[in-house]
C-alpha cells in the first residue's frame, strides 16, 4: 500500500514535469502546426544552465531563475532566426530542420561541458524526507516538484483562460486564420509563446536535474514522452496536455513497479523477469496507439 502510494506520487511528480514540456510543445504544435524535435534540447539546455549557475553561485533559486531566463531568451532567438521560416513548410521539412537543431544542441553541449554527466544537487534543506502520514515518508524535494508543477499548471490555466494573451493563444490554436484575421501580431505572439515554452522546458530541466543525470541526450527520451502526452491529450490543448501528462506519468511509473510484480504471481519468475520490464516500457505507447485508434483527436481536442 505504501509502495503504491509512493509510486503514485512519483508518477504524479514525473507527470507534472512532463506537463511543463508538453504545454510548450502542444502550443507550438497547435498554433504554428509545427513539429519541433528540438523542444527536448531546450530542456537539456535548461538543465545545463541550472547546473552551471548552481556551480558558480551555490544558490538553487538563482540557478532555476537564471536557467529560466536564459533558456527563454535562447528559445526566442531560435524562433526568430530559424523556426519562423519553417511554419509554412511541410511537416517533413520541420522534422528534418529540428532534428538538425537537436544534433547541433547535443554536440554543442558536449563541446562545452564534455561527455561526463554534471551533477545538480537539490538545496540542502530539501534533501531529507517528510513524514506525510504516520510511517509514510516521502522526499521533500519531490514534494517541491509536485508543488511547483501544480502551481505552474494553475498559472497556465489562469493565463490561458482569463487573459487577453491567453484568448489569442486559444484562438490561434483552434483557428489560425481567425487569429490572423483579428489582426493579431501573430509574429510577436509566436515568438512570445515559443519563449514561454522554452522557459517551461528549462523549469522542468532544472527541477528534474537533481533526480536525473544532466547529460547530453537527456532531452530525447523525455521529448518522445512529451509527444505521447500531447497526442493522448489532443494537440493544441493545455488541458489535454495536463491530463495526458499525469496519465503518462502515473501509468509509466506504476507500470514499471506493479506490472513485473503482478506478472510474477501468474508466471514463472524468469519469464516474468523478462516480460515485465518490456511490457511496462511499452505500456504508454500502447495507450497512445489506442487513443489514436479510437479517439484520433485525443482526449481533449482543441479544435471544434
Amino acid at each position: 500500500m505504501i509502495l503504491f502510494l509512493e509510486q503514485g506520487l512519483n508518477g504524479l511528480q514525473f507527470g507534472l514535469m512532463l506537463f511543463l514540456l508538453a504545454a510548450g510543445l502542444t502550443l507550438v504544435f497547435g498554433i504554428m502546426d509545427m513539429i519541433n524535435l528540438a523542444h527536448g534540447s531546450l530542456y537539456m539546455i535548461g538543465a545545463y544552465l541550472a547546473a552551471l549557475i548552481l556551480g558558480s553561485t551555490g544558490s538553487f533559486l538563482l540557478a532555476v531563475a537564471g536557467s529560466l531566463a536564459g533558456t527563454a531568451v535562447l528559445g526566442m532567438l531560435l524562433e526568430i532566426s530559424v523556426l519562423r521560416r519553417l511554419y509554412s513548410r511541410d511537416h517533413l521539412s520541420q522534422v528534418l530542420a529540428t532534428f538538425a537543431l537537436l544534433l547541433i544542441a547535443n554536440e554543442s553541449m558536449r563541446i562545452l561541458f564534455g561527455s561526463q554527466a554534471l551533477t545538480l544537487n537539490p538545496p540542502a534543506v530539501l534533501s531529507g524526507p517528510v513524514e506525510l502520514a504516520p510511517g509514510f515518508f516521502y522526499p521533500a524535494y519531490r514534494l517541491l516538484i509536485i508543488g511547483v508543477g501544480l502551481a505552474v499548471a494553475l498559472l497556465l490555466y489562469l493565463l490561458v483562460s482569463r487573459t487577453r494573451i491567453g484568448m489569442l493563444v486559444r484562438a490561434g490554436a483552434s483557428n489560425r486564420e481567425m487569429a490572423l484575421a483579428m489582426g493579431v501580431n501573430v509574429r510577436a505572439l509566436f515568438t512570445a509563446v515559443f519563449g514561454f515554452g522554452a522557459a517551461l522546458c528549462a523549469l522542468a530541466g532544472a527541477m528534474l536535474g537533481p533526480l536525473l543525470a544532466v547529460e547530453v541526450g537527456m532531452g530525447e527520451g523525455i521529448l518522445i514522452l512529451a509527444f505521447v502526452v500531447i497526442v493522448i491529450g489532443g494537440i493544441g490543448s493545455i488541458r489535454g496536455a495536463l491530463a495526458g501528462a499525469v496519465i503518462v506519468g502515473v501509468v509509466d511509473t506504476l507500470g514499471r513497479t506493479l506490472l513485473p510484480m503482478s506478472l510474477r504471481t501468474v508466471l514463472p519468475p524468469t519469464v516474468a523477469g523478462n516480460l515485465g520490464p518490456s511490457l511496462a516500457s511499452i505500456l504508454i505507447y500502447v495507450l497512445m496507439a489506442a487513443v489514436l485508434f479510437w479517439r484520433p483527436q485525443g482526449l481533449f481536442p482543441a479544435r471544434g
Binding site: 502546426d33 509527444f227 497526442v231 511499452i282 496507439a289
Partner: peptide, 20 residues
Amino acid sequence: VYFIMITLAFAQMVYFVFVS
C-alpha cells in the same frame, strides 16, 4: 501528423521490447 506520431509510437514499442 497523427500518422507521424503513431508510427513513431509503434517503433518505440519495438525498440523497448528488444532492449528489455
